[in-house]
């Protein structure tokens, strides 16, 4: 049995947001969509100011509120711990987004093909890309995954459906690490099986003090934070990414 867990080491995170960009390219997500997001936070008054960073992927909760409320079973929990969205079944009610206390769900408000960071229909460019939109689009994302063979990988598929972090299911299923974990310049992100107590990730968690975000809600997240503390009520964001979607 495999149960995937992600570990975020707050003692290491530089707040550089490379994970966010790696996620976007790997999963072909559209403008304003941050399946992985890194908060840059500040609290206290000068000169006793504290600044911290907090990466926030989908928490892939074991007791996931989003799974419970999904009216059509498009959002579901897999045996390996992943919480996935069947974008071919989702009806776009956004109830999962309301239920999730972490704010990790991203809806395709517009036509994804118009939200890929550029006009890619230049004929000279299409001669190079074969018309791929975005040019870096990854065909793995358009394949079914898991024993249940459902359409769950990547983003930017249809307008009007919900999407979110998949722990890079298409990579994990072939034995690779999620894109954010791979790119992290300081190894602030770790990923692995915690069903086996002897994996490096299991041992790492055991050897370090840790917490989970909004643990008190009973959501049982599969993302574990090592080092640092849960964000207090006093923190506020600096250097905002007010990236939205516009027509």
């Amino acid at each position: 049995m495999t149960k995937y867990t992600m570990v975020v080491d707050l003692d290491r995170c530089q707040g550089c947001r490379a994970c966010m960009e790696a996620c976007k390219i790997e999963n072909n997500t559209t403008e304003g969509v941050f399946w992985m997001y890194v908060f840059r936070l500040e609290e206290g008054e000068y000169p006793n100011t504290q600044q911290t960073y907090l990466p926030r992927p989908c928490q892939h909760c074991d007791n996931a509120p989003c799974v419970k409320v999904c009216p059509v079973g498009a959002r579901y929990k897999r045996e390996d711990g992943l919480v996935l969205t069947d974008f071919d079944r989702c009806i776009g009610c956004r109830y999962c987004e309301l239920a999730c206390p972490y704010g990790v769900n991203y809806f395709n408000w517009g036509k994804p093909e118009k939200q890929h960071y550029g006009e890619w229909d230049d004929p000279d460019l299409q001669a190079v890309t074969g018309g791929a939109n975005p040019p870096w689009s990854n065909p793995d994302l358009a394949r079914p995954h898991g024993d249940e063979q459902r359409m769950v990988a990547g983003g930017g598929h249809h307008k009007g459906v919900m999407e979110k972090c998949t722990f890079c299911v298409h990579l994990v299923e072939r034995g690779e690490l999620p894109a954010c974990v791979v790119t992290c310049p300081v190894q602030a992100l770790r990923f692995g099986n915690t069903d086996d107590p002897e994996t490096p990730v299991s041992r790492f968690i055991r050897e370090h003090g840790h917490f989970r975000l909004l643990d008190e809600l009973g959501t049982e997240p599969r993302v574990v934070y090592v080092g640092g503390q849960p964000p207090s009520d006093e923190v506020h964001e600096i250097e905002l990414v007010h990236a939205g979607v516009e027509r």
């Binding site: 304003g32 776009g92 987004e97 309301l98 972490y102 395709n108 408000w109 517009g110």
Partner: peptide, 11 residues
Amino acid sequence: GEIVTGLRNVG
């Protein structure tokens, strides 16, 4: 798509 509405994601 609902991009023409004022609705957007939380977070």
